[in-house]
Nucleic acid binder design. Structure first.
Lengths: 80, 80
DNA sequence: TGACTAAGAGAATCTTAGCTA
DNA sequence: TAGCTAAGATTCTCTTAGTCA
């Protein structure tokens, strides 16, 4: 289709292969939609560090208290 | 220049304006280079949540013990 | 049938040239 | 001079058509 109004199922297979082989990357709009469907923040896909990836994946589901705990650890360490 | 072999200083000004006005976004290679220069992980730029952004910004500088503490909080909460 | 690839179409950014305060 | 914009050149992805196991 001419106008890009969503993800076209008929070309999903070639695109996935192009991503996997490294020939192309998904463009930003596609990345956003993938993340919506997957229920993860966009930042998650740009993460090389596995530990950081876990944090990003679960951060939004943390309780307020646990978010505070994490931020405290991070900001205390940032001072030094 | 024909070949894209880096960030061209002579067109930096229009590009920054195009990013600021929302007319264009930086392409992925440019984003990577910007993050190298800024010393932040790529994921940092894709972060809407300020708390999470702080975590990403400082995570790589945490001590091993503090990384473990953070991961513990995240994984405990993920179970429920 | 499903996984994968090549090549052209289409859409996005980058560059140049020029305008505005 | 610095900041900003328009439009074409360039580069990249997406689609189609087709091959291969």
């Amino acid at each position: 289709m001419g106008i890009q109004a969503g993800i076209d199922p008929s070309s999903a297979s070639p695109r996935m292969n192009q991503y996997e082989t490294g020939k192309h990357r998904p463009d930003p709009k596609t990345i956003e939609k993938l993340c919506e469907v997957l229920g993860v923040p966009v930042a998650y896909l740009y993460c090389e560090d596995d530990g950081l990836a876990q944090i990003i994946e679960h951060y939004s589901r943390l309780t307020k208290k646990d978010k505070e705990k994490v931020l405290k650890i991070v900001s205390q360490n940032a001072k030094s």
